[in-house]
């Protein structure tokens, strides 16, 4: 009987011990997370973009929309977490055979990514991380020349496999230089150059149905996504980002970037293709003084 009581007491003590250990671990994870430099990013830029919606037209529409974004970044040598939204807005047009058609296009994207260091591929100067990125892109297009098919909306949710190479190109010590007879100094600076490649693993789309326009308006029951169809494991998407990041003495950063994003929908419905080249500048404000 006493042995049984001792055994029961021992069994009861185990969770307490475990809880203490877990609490110790979670404090540690929390501490690690808090120690990771965190930035709020404000982005502005412009894009060069074109799209083709086979459901309504075989012609390309091109434009140079402006680009805005807001984001939060938590990153260090071992791990990166990025979350943000962006909006691209502008007018696209097709000019062919003395005909011009215009489409106003708004592209709203939300994304979340986590990247983890690959120790075996990384070195002192080159940091290699891999992970995943989830992006949802919503396009809203209005092309009056297409009459009742003027409104086009696509939702493109994509889960990417992601790899990022970051090269430290900092100048660690001051250098003395001379140009002809003019002497000058190159100060210490912290810079890095990174390249991020994302390949769509789970591609999907929500898009207009076969007839494109729905009939809800003539049913006296207007609906926004009337007869839209969701297709999973359909289509393909890739994106990449080239970032040049300048660290400032106040722990903030300035980042110049070139983004390339391309996708096409799949399935039986007429395809939608889009390619965007975006040039942007991001001000990264350090929020935790790390």
């Amino acid at each position: 009987m006493k042995r049984i009581i001792k055994l029961i007491l021992l069994l009861l003590l185990i969770p307490i011990g475990t809880f203490a250990q877990t609490e110790e671990l979670s404090l540690s994870n929390k501490a690690i997370r808090k120690s990771r430099p965190t930035y709020i990013g404000i982005t502005m830029g412009f894009s060069s973009s074109k799209y083709r919606d086979f459901a309504t037209s075989p012609l390309f529409y091109s434009g140079a929309p402006i680009y805005f974004g807001a984001s939060r970044h938590r990153l260090d040598e071992k791990k990166e977490t990025h979350v943000g939204i962006s909006l691209s807005s502008g007018s696209y047009s097709n000019e062919y055979n003395r005909h011009t058609a215009e489409s106003s296009v708004q592209v709203l994207s939300g994304y979340y990514s986590q990247l983890f260091k690959l120790n075996k591929l990384s070195s002192d100067k080159l940091n290699v991380k891999a992970g995943g990125l989830f992006t949802t892109t919503a396009n809203l297009r209005i092309n009056e020349s297409l009459q009742n098919n003027a409104l086009g909306i696509e939702l493109i949710p994509t889960l990417f496999g992601s790899i990022k190479l970051t090269k430290d190109i900092s100048r660690k010590e001051e250098k003395q230089k001379k140009f002809i007879f003019i002497k000058y100094r190159l100060k210490e600076r912290t810079r890095n150059l990174s390249f991020n490649l994302n390949i769509g693993l789970l591609n999907s789309s929500l898009r207009n149905g076969f007839a494109y326009a729905g009939q809800s308006s003539i049913l006296n029951d207007a609906k926004l996504f009337d007869r839209y169809e969701f297709k999973m494991f359909s289509g393909f998407r890739m994106s990449s980002a080239l970032d040049y990041t300048i660290s400032l003495s106040n722990k903030n950063k300035v980042q110049l970037s070139y983004l390339w994003d391309a996708y096409k929908t799949g399935g039986e419905l007429d395809q939608f293709n889009m390619i965007m080249h975006t040039f942007k500048i991001t001000l990264l404000f350090n929020t935790n003084n790390k």
């Binding site: 097709n94 005909h99 020349s145 297409l146 009742n148 098919n149």
Partner: peptide
């Protein structure tokens, strides 16, 4: 209900 579309020649 009529739709709308575009030809290859615009």
């Amino acid at each position: 209900l009529p739709n709308g579309g575009q030809l290859p020649n615009g």
